[in-house]
Design a protein around this nucleic acid. Structure first.
Length: 512
RNA sequence: GCCAGGGUAGCUCAGCGGUAGAGCAGGGGACUCAUAAGCCCUUGGUCGGGGGUUCGAUUCCCCCCUCUGGCACCA
């Protein structure tokens, strides 16, 4: 047993609909979660939604419904997306959950008791229309832009959390734990952001201005604002049946929320509360849409993952995002690239390999995987008998490089396709004196298909099960060690081949 | 402005001191088990520009150009 493994994703803000970026992060987390499960770990995997705040309050108001109802509807939408992608979290976090509210209030109270939180009057410019404070920096050509409406000077007392006292400790932590932020260049950015003294963090809003939030335990006229509510979710749900999994082994976030939220506020909150820090903050990049930046304010730029899942199935989108994006970097999404991965890697390489293997076993051996002996193994079989792929795959996943892990698997797929050409079982089948050798070749191919079904389990769980179903093997759960070469299939009867990734006659047309 | 990461074949990228690689796209071939699939061969690059270090630089150093991102609550 590898023990416990706790991982989280960022929680998504329910104010806008889920898009490809949300889908990617969840698939990524699900991939690591399934991988850890296949290693025998006891996995706690959290994902969910962030439901409080001004924008949600406003959106609900605009639709004329209660904020809670708005949240229920949007949260369901995110949950449906996760489900359609095969993202199987241990728990779907909602920040409107009563338990979460209790924990947030507990933490705030403890920090308040310790003197980490203080009350202070802030005087500044306030936009009545936007219901928010604005600064000189917001001015355009010395004037407040029209969107702010009337701007007045006003005073508002709020609660603040002190960050600066912990800056040096955070820097030290980063020095001593270079793996705290992955990839390295993000760690450097964080170090850069920590060279200047940190301003106090405003953590409250008066209820008169924002009602949709968690009330402060020491002053019920205020609610807590943004990060105190959102970040604490990782702790609120870190237990299963009384067992605490803290600290997280892996926290997956987008590059936009490393600085300052997860890279500064979060560790300092944990310092202040004497809690252990997560082992890794894994920072992923963003998707572009056919080369264009994806922006929430530009509906045209958004990529909706749902139609792709509906048309191609969850594994295709999973494979695409894991294979195409170098974790940490940005990557581009386009129908053309998607089609290339689908038709090529999945259909013609993997799908066809499974198809031709099963077909030949059906045709030449009545669907029974033949047994073979050592006398009929030849050097041609060596590549398929090697376990190097498993090691290569594992190392890539350990190094947070799913694209390389998949590349390693597809190298085996390619070798297996080459093997068919090289050993030409369809020729052996015509020569009765080669029957034993044909047994060995088909045996190796069947075993390769089986191993592939294990190797792709974390990335393409549905396809993995389809392959095992065709082999008439138990569907799972599987352990990665089952991907080692063996000969358990001798004499096993398989089912009928079924096309895994059928070709689409027509290219997807615009508007359909 | 400061900081970071890029600029390498038509496209996406790897290589990072010893006269350039992969996948996809393009061209050709042999085969037929298979999703008109797979396999083999192949066209294609003065490695952003300039200077320097070196016997030798795409690879190290400096300068410049250019793109992207961070320093500000959008995965």
């Amino acid at each position: 047993m590898s023990g416990a493994y706790f991982l989280t994703t960022a929680i998504d803000y329910v104010n806008s609909a889920p898009h490809l970026g949300h889908a990617y992060e969840k698939v990524l987390a699900d991939f690591f979660a399934r991988h850890q499960q296949s290693l025998g770990s006891d996995v706690l995997f959290l994902t969910g939604v962030d439901e409080h705040g001004q924008k949600v309050q406003q959106s609900a108001q605009k639709e004329g419904i209660e904020p809670q109802l708005f949240c229920d509807e949007m949260s369901a939408r995110f949950q449906r997306l996760h489900e359609s992608l095969g993202v199987k979290a241990s728990h779907f976090v909602r920040t409107t959950d009563a338990h979460h509210k209790t924990i947030v209030r507990e933490w705030l109270q403890r920090l308040h008791d310790k003197g980490e939180i203080f009350f202070q009057e802030y005087e500044g410019y306030y936009s009545i229309r936007q219901e928010q404070f604005v600064t000189e920096k917001d001015k355009v050509d010395g004037q407040w832009p029209e969107i702010f409406g009337e701007v007045i000077q006003t005073k508002e007392p709020n609660y603040y959390f002190r960050l600066e006292p912990y800056r040096q400790r955070l820097l030290k932590h980063l020095e001593e734990n270079p793996e705290f932020v992955v990839p390295t260049f993000r760690r450097k950015e964080l170090l850069g952001a920590l060279t200047e003294p940190l301003a106090d963090l405003c953590i409250s809003r008066p209820k008169s201005r924002l009602s949709w939030g968690i009330p402060l335990p020491f002053n019920e006229d205020y609610v807590t604002y943004v990060w105190f509510d959102a970040l604490v979710n990782y702790y609120s749900f870190a237990s299963i049946k009384g067992t605490l999994y803290w600290p997280p082994d892996l926290q997956i976030i987008g590059k936009d929320i490393l600085i300052p939220a997860h890279g500064v506020y979060w560790p300092i909150m944990l310092f202040a509360l004497d809690q252990a820090l997560p082992k890794h903050l894994l920072v992923h990049g963003f998707w572009t849409n056919s080369g264009a930046k994806i922006s929430k304010s530009d509906a045209k730029s958004l990529v909706d993952p749902v139609p792709y899942v509906e048309k191609f199935g969850p594994d295709v989108l999973r494979y695409f995002v894991l294979r195409e994006m170098v974790l940490g970097q940005d990557a581009d999404f386009s129908d053309e690239r998607f089609d290339t991965r689908y038709t090529g890697d999945l259909g013609k390489k993997l799908g066809n390999l499974v198809q031709r293997t099963l077909s030949m076993i059906g045709r030449y051996r009545d669907g029974k995987i033949p047994s073979y002996d050592g006398f009929h193994i030849t050097p041609a079989d060596t590549a398929l008998r090697s376990d190097a792929v498993v090691e290569e795959y594992r190392r890539a996943v350990d190094e947070f490089a799913p694209h390389l892990a998949l590349q390693a698997i597809w190298n085996l797929v390619a070798r297996a396709n080459e093997y068919v050409e090289e050993t030409a079982p369809f020729k052996l089948a015509k020569d009765p004196t080669q029957a034993k050798r044909l047994d060995a070749v088909l045996g190796h191919l069947a075993e390769t298909i089986r191993r592939l079904s294990v190797l792709i389990e974390a990335a393409l769980p549905f396809t993995a099960k389809k392959i095992r179903a065709q082999l008439q093997l138990p569907l799972g759960p599987v352990k990665l060690e089952e991907a080692l070469f063996g000969n358990s299939l001798h004499g096993h009867v398989i089912g009928k081949p079924e096309v895994l990734f059928p070709p689409f006659e027509e290219k997807p047309q615009a508007g359909t």
